[in-house]
């Protein structure tokens, strides 16, 4: 809460951020009036935002603004922890994923996630990618091999590991491990891939490789990426959302957001005056 000194003009005469200024072609996920609580603390405050299909949306904002929290609602991973709860609706293909009737594991096969630091499982490279496929589908070995090759290719890792699929995933470098985690997340062919600062733990070259990869992935998946790195948001995303103190300040095409932001807070943040 030490960002309180930042000028807040969210109630100004400009259009409310929950009314998209220009219509989006195909909305994949539609968040309406979402609030999120860690116990008594409200981390996300009445946020409404649409994520369009097959585009990369970046969520930016200073630490503690609720951007990771928003991401963690979208696959309900927060529900692992008692005391965390979400209010509002999140529509995926017209269904509210926050309703108790929506099965968590079914949701997570549609919404994959890549975390900040690489999290390879203590098994072979092959098994890391195969684990979820084997669980969700009855699949023949030949088909499984194909699926794994396809996932690793999409994650731009295939050429580096094709001769060593049975090696431990720990034998890979940090950047390779993160691409393995991307392959693992897309192996079940989800609709959406959530990425929570996926390059924060990586060196610049590994970061570049993953950024290159994102554009290709967006042809098949809807990507929502949380990042601290403004240049990264500018480089890779089609749309950018700026959050501050749990509220969505504005969202729009990335170029517009960086060239002529509507709000002073956004301008201050992207020009590095705080954050």
């Amino acid at each position: 809460m030490n960002d309180m000194s930042v000028p807040m003009e969210l109630n100004s005469s400009k259009p409310a951020p929950d009314e998209p200024e220009e219509p989006i072609e195909r909305v994949r996920v539609s968040v309406r009036n979402l609030s999120f609580y860690y116990g008594m603390h409200r981390a996300v405050d009445n946020v409404s935002i649409d994520f369009p299909s097959n585009l990369i949306t970046a969520i930016i904002g200073p630490s503690g603004c609720g951007k990771s929290t928003l991401l963690r609602v979208l696959n309900r991973i927060y529900s692992l922890y008692p005391g965390q709860r979400a209010e509002g609706t999140v529509l995926l293909d017209g269904q509210d994923i926050l309703s108790p009737q929506y099965k968590t594991n079914e949701l997570r096969t549609k919404v994959g996630m890549v975390l900040q630091s690489p999290t390879p499982f203590a098994m072979s490279i092959y098994d890391n990618v195969a684990l979820a496929i084997r669980h969700h589908e009855k699949i023949h070995r030949v088909d499984l091999d194909e699926r794994i090759e396809s996932a690793l290719r999409q994650a731009a890792l295939w050429d580096e590991v094709k001769g060593a699929l049975q090696k431990s995933a720990f034998s890979l470098s940090g950047g390779q491990q993160q691409r393995l985690c991307i392959a693992r997340a897309i192996a079940t062919e989800p609709e959406i891939v959530l990425m929570d600062e996926p390059t924060a733990a990586l060196d610049p070259i590994a970061t570049l490789k993953i950024e290159d990869l994102l554009t290709d992935l967006a042809t098949r998946y809807t990507i929502i990426i949380v990042t601290h790195n403004l240049q990264q948001a500018a480089r890779v995303s089609d749309r950018t959302a700026f959050m501050l103190l749990g509220k969505l300040v504005e969202v729009g095409p990335t170029e517009k957001m960086f060239k002529e932001p509507q709000y002073r807070e956004t301008n201050s943040y992207i020009t590095g005056r705080f954050g």
Binding site: L80, L107, T109, L115, M123, L131, A132, T188
Partner: peptide, 19 residues
């Protein structure tokens, strides 16, 4: 985050624990 990564694949808890 290892637990979160496993759960976010949509696999049930028994499988997360054992596998």
């Amino acid at each position: 985050n290892l637990r979160e990564a496993a759960f976010s694949l949509g696999i049930p808890k028994w499988k997360v624990v054992t596998a």
